[in-house]
């Protein structure tokens, strides 16, 4: 049996705000009253690997004009080809015994101290989690607004210390064909990999999400931790990360390797550079109903923050 001991940096359950955790915490209080401090595996699985961390909205990364997409839509409309190419499939197939707890991430390559770290320990080391409300724009021309919980990617990279010759960051998703039907089928080349330039990765907007709406991130959204780079198309936001490698050479992402003309390394949201088969000038707003179409913003609305990263670059060439 898996016994969980609360870590010293975990705040009391009363600090937790979301409804489902609220109910669970009452159960914990009850267990505590009986003198039982460890929570059994069953409850923990229901909560996810990164449960128990208090989160608080960071107002610096929240625009009151953004209306968050419904939790149901965020967790039912997923591209996670490891679990099938239909939007509805990951919700079904990623929750049939695929284990995302415990979970260990390796940081290696051009770093001062290569590390292997369990995801709960990682959250403790980077100083806990916070909530940020980001726009999310898929390359398929649809968008959401998602309240992510997590921490800044730069804090994680700092744990390993990138060397001076590290120029890029390469991310790897898990590879477990036994648990992932899409990997068995081979609908893409697995494991899924993605990359960022180091300065992009160190940008304050680049984020590692461990939760959505204050709850641990569901399996279909990339449990227990995934990348969120809000000014890039969704496919850059690699899910269920097991390895992060600092490199000198520009990595090639899975989609870029498959069809470079359609999916570039940068994949910055750009309404003036079309996908060869459809326009990127506007997007469907998930949950928006009949009138749910809006114009796409340059860098997905984060141009003030990130445009300087690409100063002097021809974005039609480096798409």
């Amino acid at each position: 049996m898996h016994i969980r001991t609360p870590k010293d940096w975990e705040l009391p359950e009363s600090a937790v705000t979301s409804e489902s955790l609220y109910h669970l915490s009452k159960r914990r209080d009850f267990l505590k009253a009986l003198g039982i401090t460890a929570v059994a595996l069953g409850a923990r699985q229901a909560m996810g690997a990164t449960a128990g961390f208090p989160t608080k909205l960071n107002p610096a990364f929240h625009d009151a004009a953004l209306k968050p997409t419904a939790y149901d839509a965020i967790t039912s409309y997923n591209n996670f080809y490891e679990f099938g190419t239909g939007k509805d499939e990951p919700r079904e197939l990623a929750n049939r015994g695929w284990k995302t707890d415990p979970w260990t991430v390796e940081i290696s390559g051009l770093v001062d101290t290569p590390i292997k770290i369990e995801v709960n320990d990682m959250i403790g080391k980077v100083g806990g989690i916070e909530q940020r409300v980001y726009r999310f724009r898929c390359v398929e021309a649809w968008s959401m607004v998602i309240p992510w919980d997590g921490f800044q990617l730069s804090k994680l990279l700092a744990l390993a210390g990138p060397k001076a010759d590290a120029k890029f960051v390469k991310f790897y998703t898990f590879n477990d064909p036994k648990s992932a039907p899409g990997q068995r089928e081979g609908n893409l080349e697995y494991p899924y990999v993605e990359g960022l330039r180091l300065d992009e990765a160190m940008h304050e907007l680049s984020f590692i999400a461990t939760g959505i709406y204050g709850k641990p991130i569901p399996n279909q959204n990339g449990a227990p931790l995934r990348l969120v780079v809000p000014w890039k198309y969704g496919f850059k936001n690699i899910k269920s990360i097991v390895k992060i490698e600092l490199t000198a050479k520009q990595p090639r992402g899975t989609w870029e390797a498959m069809q470079a003309r359609e999916y570039g390394f940068y994949a910055n949201v750009n309404p003036t550079v079309d996908h060869p088969r459809w326009s990127q000038a506007s997007e469907r707003v998930i949950g928006g109903g009949l009138g749910g179409r809006q114009r796409t913003l340059m860098f997905n609305g984060y141009d003030k923050q990130v445009a300087s990263l690409y100063a002097g670059m021809d974005l039609k060439k480096f798409y």
Binding site: A73, S76, Y77, K87, R284, I286, G289, G292
Partner: peptide, 11 residues
Amino acid sequence: PDPSVTADALK
């Protein structure tokens, strides 16, 4: 209603 469908029923 299937949330995977109603997320964007038009699609």
